[in-house]
Amino acid sequence: MSAVPTLEDRYRRLLRALPEPARSRWADEMTDTYLTATCAHDPEFAEFGSPDLADRLDVWGLALRLRLGGPGSSARASLTGATVRWVALLGTLAAAAPAALAQLARTLDPGPPWVTGWHVPFNTLAAVLAVAVFGCLVHGSVVARATAGALLALHLFAAITTSAPIGSTVAFLLPAAVPLLAALAVDPVRVDRPGWWWAGALGALLLVGGLPYLSLLAPVWLTSDAVAAVGLTVVGAVAVVRTAAPAAGAVAVLGLLTLPVLLLPLVVGGGPAGYVAVQAGAVALLAATTVVCAVTAVRAVRRLPSPRT
């Protein structure tokens, strides 16, 4: 007959969610604190009680913070946290630049009067929020999570209400949603050089606006997705050359998320030969960037000491 688990066993099982070295450091004492707190007025609770939902959420929250480089976490967790920050920053930058440019173009040329409907204010709101999330992340604002949450809700609403096939909806939702989830996961911390990030944003705007314009002069089918592939390759190349592992890791993640968007038109088929060629070229470029950046990031992680040592 196996022994019935006590409250202590249940707390210890819950605390297994904590990563090392924090688990070894705190699990014993946290168990003692939990038991003292919960059994002070009800000793029988030690026999049959169980951690409540608030305790579970609290421990999972601590486990997430420790896995993302919070104080007391391992060197690997610090690198993971920095990578998640880069995913949030680069991903929101990649979303904010085309959205801002589209709004700018619409302000300069509102288009024909019949271009109306709920998607017009929706797109404006999404663009404003995208720029706001990026700004909040760069400056470490306390409202970063709130703005990221609002934009994520907007994307989810759009994904739920669309009539597009589920495959393409998911393919387009993931590169938008994952950076916002990353923004929700990390604590808002101001970057070292905000000016550089705003300069990068300006560069992204010029890239997004400039490359398709050039393609009009020398007819090449440069889609916004192909421009995104070029942008990620530029950032990835700089990250690999400077062995900046978090940035390389983030480019690898964003590359993986963007590849399905680029592959989708090729899978569906059709379109002029020039368009297919550019799209296929962008897929090859982004796939190569993703692999090189992933290898750089994984090597950097392996060089760090294991949390258990």
Binding site: M30, A54, D55, D58, V59, L62, G72
Partner: peptide, 10 residues
């Protein structure tokens, strides 16, 4: 909460 306390102590 206990998790919050130990995160804070760290």
């Amino acid at each position: 909460r206990v998790g919050t306390l130990y995160g804070l102590l760290d």
